[in-house]
Design a protein around this nucleic acid. Structure first.
Lengths: 222, 222, 222, 222
DNA sequence: GATGAATGAGAGTTCATTCAT
DNA sequence: AATGAATGAACTCTCATTCAT
């Protein structure tokens, strides 16, 4: 694996007919989620997929490509959900934001899916193009959707004059944080379901912690 | 390196006289921060330290141990800052929280320090004992300090009846998020200094996004 | 493929009806000529033949056997040309030798034919039985024909008392050399046609380079 | 090994002090000569050198580079001999040519050295840059030296008006041919020493085969 | 007759670790 | 204390060969 990566050109790997490639990715998700990228051997993936190591190379030209294909496959699905959710609720920004936040909770309930952001974070430096892809397809689009909703809320006088991008991140980051935390420190997971957390986070996001408005500011225009 | 780790028994590597071990860790931080754990070779560390590869083994019994020692060394320093900051300001919870938040910004301005949480996150599964150590000495203590301040604020009627732990995370996570984001997606860094971000985050944390208090709730008691 | 080869037992591969085996050999010649034996994959041959890789195994039991069959097939053709040429011209040894030399030029004009000696040379050590076959069917018979002509010339007083075998090689080797050279160093090919070269080589062969006979010798009797 | 090679930039591999690299090349020559490039495994070279496979990589970055270094080392030596020999004998072209021819015989008496041209010929298509290197450093310079001598002979009226390059090849090719023949068909080697062959070849080269000058022509101007 | 799918047995290469000096 | 030299044990990737369909 090289540190330097060529620009990311989505699917180079050609899918053979049949479900095999998907099975391989399924298996790969399991092992990558468990061990991370570098520590996962092709043999592990093969064994998990019930195939020989060489068979993997029938479907994907390299380990890197297995990983990339996996990310593309899983992320693409995720990402479209958020998009859709955001679009349909511009009328009621509060409900829209809440909806997106809840969707997060649902989507990442599956621990194996939740592993992807962690892995990407871990390997971002060595897969800059993959990180870029993730940023473009997930982060930017989610942010854009949230920003749109927040801006609509501001325009409608529902929200203060905060910086929308910053507010979007303030909403999302506790959720991301929780996802990462649960994986990295599993011993410290109390059973609290994500749904409950989402509601509390959303309440704080809307109302803040202060008992009475504590002025004066209203976000920073960078 | 095995996926399964023995229980974490702090420093088993015995420090030889002289400053050499510290120099090695200094060098190790550089390269781990740059390439992550797996992609860093002992040769890289050695070269960065101006030593031969074999010399590293005079001070640390293995690559894993270099990594662990590094985390231990750096984390201790970090952690004590927050502790101190929190303690001295119980009188004015708002000022206290703001102080802690600002200290984050300052501490992690140094990119090599900022790399630590990312690396630990990335390698947590393969170094569970190290993750545990980090959780215990940094996360728990920071949380404890924040919770104390928040609880004081609630008791003083300054804050709403939120769940203090959750609120603490709501304050910290946008900052952590930003630290991780900057490292993983350096191409998307606008030059905004952390200080500015901290103030904005803190404002949102205190006041929320809503123009007028949007009601009832006040956090969730899990 | 082993370095040690069993004794050469001509065609063990049984031809199935239809022209398929010939088509495979045709394709194999193309790719072997282009890449040599080791670097040619069964997949390459299959693709060139418009068949699946597995189908090749219907006709030939192994890659080695494809190669052997190919050489056998092609060599036979080559060899018979020279034979014929030599036989019919014993009356006029000079014309006979010239005729054979010209036939070389013609036969090896086809690059795919010219590739054979190079490939055999390259793989001779790993296919000693094949090399032996080539030596027996091509080299020895060509030499024999030339030696016969040369001896006839000596007997007729046309040629000096040279060692016929050596003289035969002296005539043939510049031509072989040129064939190999053109393939190995294609960048250094000037467009000169083989025909022109043959005439010049033959002139040198007959008359030597010296302006006046430079005595004294007349070949070596080993 | 790739079919496409970057341009040949002589020694990239940095020699470590001590005789190790030379020992490796010595061993590599043995195995390459025996099995050719593709069929030689790094393990073979290592074993022949009394080292572990990994140790080879301390001195040479890849198998390709071992081969290239070997060729450079051996060929460089050879080639300078011819150069020197040719230069010092421009006064007496016949003696000069004879001297160069004899030097061939001597240099390639060592069968392992004689293997190099064969291997290069065999692998030329996959190592075009190496072939180019060989052509430039050995073939072209040898030819140039011979051409110079031949031209001097023509100018002095000693030689006929032949095409010097062609004549040069006519002299060299029987010797090359013999070198290749001995390796490819070892079963057909009679014990004749190269020296004897060289004298006979040289006689033919000078005087031709014809009993009386058979006239007209005098080489071809392409 | 033909093939898509699969694999076992390597190949070259890397790297944490060791050890004689 | 320090290192140059060496290696064993991986690892990724390749390919001739097989076989159920």
């Amino acid at each position: 694996m090289n540190v330097i990566e060529p620009p990311f050109n989505p699917p180079k790997w050609t899918r053979k007919p049949g479900a095999r490639p998907e099975e391989v990715l399924e298996a790969a998700l399991d092992v990558f989620a468990l061990n991370g990228f570098a520590a996962t051997r092709m043999d592990d993936i093969a064994k998990a997929a019930g195939l020989s190591k060489a068979a993997i190379y029938l479907y994907f030209p390299s380990k890197d490509d297995v990983f990339k294909a996996l990310v593309e496959q899983r992320i693409g699905v995720l990402q479209s959900h958020f998009d859709a959710a955001a679009k349909e609720q511009k009328r009621d920004p509060v409900a829209g934001l809440r909806h997106v936040a809840r969707m997060w909770a649902t989507s990442f309930q599956d621990l194996r899916v939740a592993a992807l952001p962690r892995i990407i974070l871990a390997e971002a430096l060595r897969f800059p193009d993959l990180a870029e892809f993730y940023h473009r397809t997930v982060i930017e689009r989610t942010q854009a959707a949230l920003v749109e909703l927040i801006q609509a809320g501001i325009d409608a006088g529902l929200f203060r004059q905060v910086e929308p991008l910053l507010a979007a991140r303030a909403l999302v980051s506790p959720l991301v944080f929780e996802i990462l935390r649960r994986q990295a420190f599993p011993a410290h997971n109390i059973g609290q379901p994500m749904e409950v957390l989402v509601e509390a986070v959303f309440d704080l996001f809307l109302n803040g912690i202060a008992a009475v408005p504590l002025l004066p500011s209203a976000g920073v225009k960078p």
